[in-house]
């Protein structure tokens, strides 16, 4: 695979114009493609763009991790060539950007972290219990609902301090999307967005803010990205999935969540609370946004080539960076969707 990619790269170098671009790029000048959006996939995107540039020195992709909202806005206004988001665009946003397409790139997940004095074991949660904690209905760690799930653990009678993200974030989006699916009250009282009105608790800025508060505050619970918990070796609990199994977040269990989900043709799908054995329930895709009929055909062609690479060879970089690779069925669907891009 790598050799094949290198061969095409060399071929591209000797005959730059045959690549389908109608001579918009002068030979020797790298083609610059700009994108902006979600911060969550920034580490893997940076890795991809730098690796891809090594294989194809004539293509340089620049990415600004300004947040999903900013990415959607900039791609809607055509100030960048592609966008990236952690939550799919809604109907109103789609109307403002006709012809925009979603392409899942990798998967991420959100895990519950906690700090309970005297408790070292791994706690088990269910969706409704997490929702009731974040609604402020379960106030103490030895609440019967928690005690029943964790019969082997001696839970203290301390108050639960709730920690959530204060900044608008895809992490919050995935978490509240899951809680809204499993708790009708959470859905009506809080709802789904990158920022929500939390009924209780304190807000920390970023994963580091939340994990900082949780590690320091006795009796606290928070939620962080799986990748962040793994890299910083923060212990986290398991969550019961739709098949009634208690599953810990891992790159494997997250990929399983995507493999078991029904994927619509526009890829705008939430895979939280996924059915299927071994699926981790608080998982989500992250998407790259491309226009089906881009104005700049040369960049369009280059992005399609890049996406082909990212969805195949590129996936091997994902687990090391804490992201779950896409399941094969999703990659196949995306390859077909990429063919519909009018880029040549």
């Amino acid at each position: 695979m790598l050799a094949a990619a290198l061969l095409t790269a060399c071929g591209g170098n000797t005959q730059p114009v045959t690549a389908g671009s109608p001579g918009t790029v002068a030979p020797g000048q790298p083609l610059q493609i700009n994108g902006a959006g979600a911060t969550f996939p920034n580490p893997i995107y940076s890795k991809w763009f730098s690796e891809y540039n090594k294989l194809h020195p004539d293509i340089r992709i620049n990415y600004q991790s300004i947040g999903s909202g900013g990415g959607i806005q900039q791609v809607t206004n055509h100030t960048v060539f592609f966008g990236a988001t952690d939550g799919p665009m809604n109907e109103e946003q789609l109307k403002a950007a006709p012809g925009i397409m979603h392409f899942p790139t990798v998967l991420g997940a959100v895990v519950p972290v906690y700090n309970i004095p005297g408790v070292t074991g791994e706690l088990k949660f269910t969706g409704p219990v997490l929702a009731d904690i974040y609604l402020g209905k379960i106030k103490k760690w030895n609440d019967p609902a928690l005690a029943k799930l964790n019969s082997g653990v001696k839970l203290p009678a301390t108050d639960i301090t709730i920690v959530h993200r204060s900044d608008g974030s895809g992490t919050t989006y995935i978490f509240v999307d899951y809680l809204s699916k499993v708790s009708p009250q959470f859905k009506s009282d809080v709802g789904v967005s990158t920022s929500v009105k939390w009924p209780a608790g304190v807000g920390g800025k970023g994963n580091e803010g939340v994990s900082g508060l949780v590690t320091q505050t006795p009796g606290s619970i928070g939620y962080v990205e799986l990748i962040y918990a793994l890299q910083n070796k923060i212990p986290f609990g398991s969550v019961q999935n739709a098949a009634s199994e208690f599953v810990k977040g891992s790159t494997d269990s997250v990929t399983k969540a995507a493999a078991g989900a029904t994927i619509p043709s526009d890829f705008r799908v939430s895979i939280t609370n996924a059915t299927g054995a071994g699926a981790y329930p608080i998982s989500s895709f992250t998407w790259i946004l491309l226009y089906q009929d881009p104005m700049d055909k040369a960049s369009g062609k280059a992005m399609v080539d890049f996406m082909h690479w990212a969805l195949t060879d590129g996936q091997k970089f994902a687990p090391d960076l804490g992201y779950a690779p896409l399941p094969a069925n999703v990659v196949m669907m995306e390859m077909a969707a990429l063919d519909t891009l009018k880029a040549s």
Partner: peptide
């Protein structure tokens, strides 16, 4: 600072 980037 917190909410501007994600306010779509």
């Amino acid at each position: 600072a917190n909410e501007f980037t994600e306010a779509a």
